[in-house]
Simulated assay, not measured.
Amino acid sequence: MSAILPPAERLWWKHPLDRVEAVWIAIAFAWCMVMFLMMVFWHVYGKQNLSTETYKTTPDKFAAKAQAMVDKYTVRTETDEKIPVVHPPVGSDIYLTARLWAWRPILELEKDKTYKLHLTSMDYNHGFSLQPTNINIQVVPGYEHVVKITPNQSGQFSIVCNEYCGINHHTMVGRLYVK
């Protein structure tokens, strides 16, 4: 028999399994189980992935919540576009909106205090990447992503879109202050 020619019998799964094949299948299965368990371990004990809640929403409903937060907690504006800087109370829900090519509003949070961050996109897929930390969340239109965050470092952090969203993608940078 040649590897070029098709097998004489088409029902290959009815042939007995060779011992070497069985060993390799067992090794592959065992390795898959190890990697599966390691993913759970890394998530729970390694704190490498954020646990997010996701809800269906509409741009209008989310924009109303975000605007209510901005109206209530704005402390100043920054940049030429007059982007509001909000300083919400500790433990509150904070809303961050992605839209071509901006993150709004600028958030001002307190160190070692917990907040619930709500994210959504108003138009296209965007990626929320908090620099220089390793936090990455894909932000999808029509869905509200909720993450509990506790900033543990003071400073100014950049929010970068890491999902290509168009010609001005490189300008989609927001800010987060931790005091």
Score class of each variant (00 low, 15 high):
19 R>G: 03
66 A>P: 00
129 S>E: 04
127 G>Y: 01
103 W>A: 03
132 P>E: 04
142 G>K: 08
176 L>T: 12
79 T>C: 12
179 K>S: 09
165 C>H: 01
31 W>C: 14
81 E>R: 14
81 E>V: 14
165 C>N: 03
140 V>C: 03
128 F>Y: 01
110 E>W: 02
47 K>C: 13
81 E>M: 11
145 H>P: 00
90 V>P: 02
160 V>T: 00
108 E>D: 12
116 K>L: 13
1 M>P: 13
32 C>S: 12
169 H>I: 05
63 A>K: 13
71 D>V: 06
33 M>R: 12
42 W>E: 13
27 I>P: 03
52 T>K: 12
48 Q>H: 13
130 L>S: 09
177 Y>R: 12
58 T>Y: 05
157 F>S: 03
81 E>I: 10
91 G>D: 02
165 C>D: 05
128 F>W: 02
128 F>I: 03
45 Y>V: 14
109 L>A: 00
65 K>G: 00
51 S>A: 13
66 A>N: 10
65 K>A: 09
3 A>H: 15
65 K>D: 12
2 S>L: 09
71 D>R: 05
32 C>R: 08
168 N>C: 15
119 L>P: 03
69 M>I: 04
162 N>Y: 01
86 V>M: 06
15 H>P: 00
142 G>M: 06
166 G>R: 09
85 V>Q: 02
121 S>Q: 01
115 Y>H: 05
36 F>W: 10
38 M>F: 11
120 T>W: 01
147 V>E: 02
117 L>N: 11
106 I>F: 07
131 Q>V: 11
9 E>G: 05
49 N>R: 15
2 S>M: 09
10 R>Q: 09
148 K>V: 04
104 R>M: 11
119 L>H: 00
159 I>M: 06
125 N>R: 06
39 M>A: 15
88 P>I: 02
167 I>V: 08
171 T>F: 10
152 N>T: 14
109 L>S: 00
160 V>A: 05
108 E>G: 00
84 P>M: 07
152 N>G: 04
150 T>K: 07
154 S>E: 12
24 W>V: 11
66 A>Q: 13
90 V>E: 08
164 Y>Q: 06
148 K>M: 10
109 L>N: 06
149 I>D: 07
34 V>Q: 10
113 K>L: 05
146 V>C: 02
25 I>V: 15
67 Q>P: 01
55 Y>D: 06
56 K>E: 11
56 K>F: 14
20 V>A: 15
28 A>M: 05
142 G>F: 02
5 L>K: 15
99 R>V: 09
57 T>I: 10
107 L>T: 07
115 Y>T: 07
5 L>P: 05
113 K>R: 12
172 M>Q: 14
165 C>F: 02
108 E>F: 12
98 A>R: 01
116 K>F: 10
157 F>E: 04
12 W>T: 12
24 W>I: 12
16 P>K: 05
76 R>K: 13
106 I>Q: 00
57 T>K: 07
122 M>N: 03
118 H>D: 04
146 V>S: 12
143 Y>K: 10
26 A>Q: 09
29 F>I: 14
12 W>A: 15
123 D>R: 00
47 K>D: 15
105 P>K: 07
32 C>P: 01
37 L>P: 07
66 A>V: 08
37 L>N: 09
158 S>K: 11
